[in-house]
Computed example of a mutant assay.
Amino acid sequence: MPRTTGPGLRGRAHRAHLPRVARKVGSRSLSTLRPGGTLVSIVPPDESFPADRARAAGMRAVFTLVEPDQAALRAIASLVDSGRLRVEVGAVAPLEEVSRAHALGEGGRTRGKIVLSPT
């Protein structure tokens, strides 16, 4: 399954999309999904949540609440270690440059995750 975020998604057909924060991202994300795809949001749904539009387009839009779970984190780490789950890293910045890293993310032009390194 493709695991990508950011503005470069438009025109691509993904099975799932997990928007990061804003409610408006959820609505825009529907255009990135293929028929039968799923939009997963961690933002609590309100009247703007696109569940009805997703259903009408042959997709799903769901909300999930994530709580810390040591066993689940170990399972995820195992998936990463085995190569079955990959994270696309778009940039690495030293912790002292957190404001630059934040500006990169806000600019919407980074493909992949921005990682802050303590060293």
Rank of each mutant, 00 (worst) to 15 (best):
G36K: 07
G37V: 01
L39A: 01
L39T: 01
V40W: 01
V40M: 04
V40A: 04
V40P: 00
S41Q: 01
I42W: 11
I42A: 15
V43W: 07
V43P: 03
V43R: 11
P44G: 06
P45Y: 02
P45V: 02
P45W: 01
P45T: 03
D46F: 04
D46E: 09
E47M: 11
S48R: 07
F49Q: 00
P50E: 03
P50Q: 03
P50Y: 02
P50N: 03
P50K: 00
A51C: 10
D52L: 08
D52V: 09
R53G: 03
R53M: 05
A54C: 09
A54M: 05
A54V: 02
A54H: 00
R55G: 11
R55D: 06
A56N: 09
A56W: 06
A57V: 05
A57E: 02
A57L: 06
G58N: 07
G58R: 04
G58P: 00
G58S: 07
M59D: 00
M59C: 05
R60M: 06
A61L: 02
A61D: 01
V62F: 07
V62Q: 06
F63S: 10
F63R: 02
T64S: 15
T64N: 14
T64G: 15
L65G: 15
L65Q: 13
L65M: 13
L65F: 14
L65V: 13
V66R: 11
E67G: 14
Q70S: 14
A71N: 10
A71G: 15
A71P: 04
A71Q: 10
A71R: 08
A71I: 08
A72H: 12
L73G: 14
L73P: 06
L73D: 14
L73M: 15
R74E: 11
R74N: 12
A75S: 11
A75F: 06
I76V: 15
I76R: 10
I76L: 14
A77M: 08
S78R: 11
S78V: 09
S78E: 08
S78G: 10
S78A: 14
S78Y: 05
S78C: 12
S78F: 08
L79C: 13
L79S: 10
L79P: 05
L79R: 09
V80G: 11
D81V: 13
D81I: 12
D81T: 13
D81G: 15
S82C: 12
S82W: 04
G83S: 07
G83E: 04
G83W: 02
G83M: 04
R84G: 15
R84Y: 09
R84F: 13
L85E: 02
R86S: 15
V87S: 15
V87P: 04
V87C: 14
E88A: 15
E88S: 15
E88G: 14
V89I: 09
V89M: 06
V89P: 01
V89K: 05
G90A: 04
G90C: 03
G90I: 00
G90K: 01
A91Y: 00
A91G: 07
A91P: 01
V92T: 10
V92C: 07
A93G: 08
P94G: 05
E96I: 05
E97Q: 09
E97Y: 04
E97M: 08
E97D: 10
V98M: 14
V98W: 05
S99N: 11
S99M: 10
R100N: 09
A101L: 04
A101M: 03
A101D: 02
